[in-house]
């Protein structure tokens, strides 16, 4: 089911959570709402779910206005950051809850409930723990159960509020791949909120970058990363070096710089800089340079192998002088992107 959001406003006291938001989400899409904490992304998600009422504007599902529809009539699934599993029920009963509370007229029979829940538990690969209680499960398992519980009522829209935020790095990585695969199988329209840019870029079809209640940019992961609409988007999606260029601001990502031979050898272009330190983290090496002209620091990042080759070729040394050539500069004048080359 598609979602259409028009002129949505919401304030909490003096804080503006949604400032005239417009957003269309197509049926079957997997969209990430990305932004720093307090940017309004969770409020937007809760308004879509009906857990929060907007001050103004409309939310429509597949063209039908649902702004003030009751939560129960919206047919959405919601996954909470802290799982919100029912601690006094077994895993089986947690997943069955949505079916058991239906009015008698359209409540499935006990046998149907049993088979539906068993199927869902198999889907999240946790059919072995049906008889246990939530506190006996790990964080990753609990979140998978929370997802199964949300899917049990066959929602037309799945909303996830920082679903992996409370998990450790390794489990988080596994779960987001798993979520992507699950979405590819089920095609239910999904919106998830995150403050982790890597997560958004890796999982979503489309990324909506938010800041202070407004949408900064809305596009594919490649779009927002390679063609950021505002300096905020550029800086939020990964590390970047700032190069003042007259009246414009130039931004260069650490992997978009080439290190050239020493500053004393006249040869043309590039910024003269001194190598301050090198740091190898995993597969990449980060080189920190200090500019000779204004003393600002510039980070350069490259794969480890490339760094080793470069070190041998240029005889790289801490304190040695080199030149840095940007391969691509994104320029903004007064907040507007003017070019990327």
């Amino acid at each position: 089911m598609s979602i259409e959001i028009r002129n949505l406003n919401k304030r909490f006291g003096d804080t503006v959570a949604c400032d005239g938001l417009n957003l269309d989400i197509a049926a079957g899409e997997l969209v990430a709402l990305l932004g720093p904490s307090g940017c309004g992304k969770t409020t937007l998600l809760r308004i879509i779910a009906g857990l929060e009422r907007p001050d103004g504007g409309t939310v429509a599902f597949h063209g039908a206005d649902a702004t003030f529809a009751d939560v129960r009539d919206r047919n959405v699934g919601f996954v909470f950051q802290h799982y919100a599993l029912f601690g006094h029920m077994t895993i089986f009963e947690n997943v069955a809850f949505g079916l058991r509370v239906r009015p008698k007229a359209n409540r499935p029979s006990e046998a149907q409930i049993r088979s539906a829940v068993t199927d869902l538990l198999r889907l999240v690969q946790l059919d072995a723990v049906a008889g246990r209680y939530p506190h006996q499960l790990s964080g990753g398992q609990r979140q998978r159960i929370a997802l199964a519980r949300a899917l049990a009522v066959q929602p037309k829209i799945l909303l996830l509020d920082e679903p992996f935020g409370a998990l450790d790095a390794k489990v988080r990585k596994e779960l987001r791949r798993w979520l992507r695969r699950l979405h590819d199988e089920m095609h239910v329209t999904s919106v998830f909120v995150t403050h982790d840019q890597e997560e958004a870029l890796e999982v979503a079809d489309r990324v909506v970058v938010m800041n202070q209640g407004r949408i900064e940019q809305d596009g594919t992961p490649d779009d927002v990363y390679d063609r950021p609409a505002t300096p905020f988007v550029l800086q939020f999606l990964g590390d970047v070096n700032l190069l003042p260029l007259g009246d414009a601001q130039g931004y260069v990502r650490p992997h978009e710089l080439t290190v050239l031979e020493g500053a004393d050898r006249c040869a043309g272009d590039g910024l003269p800089a001194v190598l301050a330190q090198t740091l190898t983290v995993g597969a990449n090496t980060r080189l920190e340079f200090k500019r000779l002209d204004d003393g600002a620091y510039i980070d350069v990042e490259m794969p480890r192998g490339e760094f080793l080759a470069l070190r041998d070729r240029l005889n790289l040394q801490i304190g040695g002088e080199y030149r840095l050539r940007p391969n691509r500069i994104t320029r903004f004048v007064a907040g507007e992107r003017v070019s990327a080359q």
Binding site: A49, G50, L51, V71, R72, V76, G77, F78, F80, H82, A84, L85, F86, G87, H88, M89, F97, G98, V101, R102, R149, A150, A152, V153
Partner: peptide, 25 residues
Amino acid sequence: SEQEEAARVLGASGWQIFRRVTLPN
């Protein structure tokens, strides 16, 4: 009130939320 919200999204009525979620907790 996260558990209550979860129950509401899953379609439980006010009384069902009270009896099946709040009270047992």
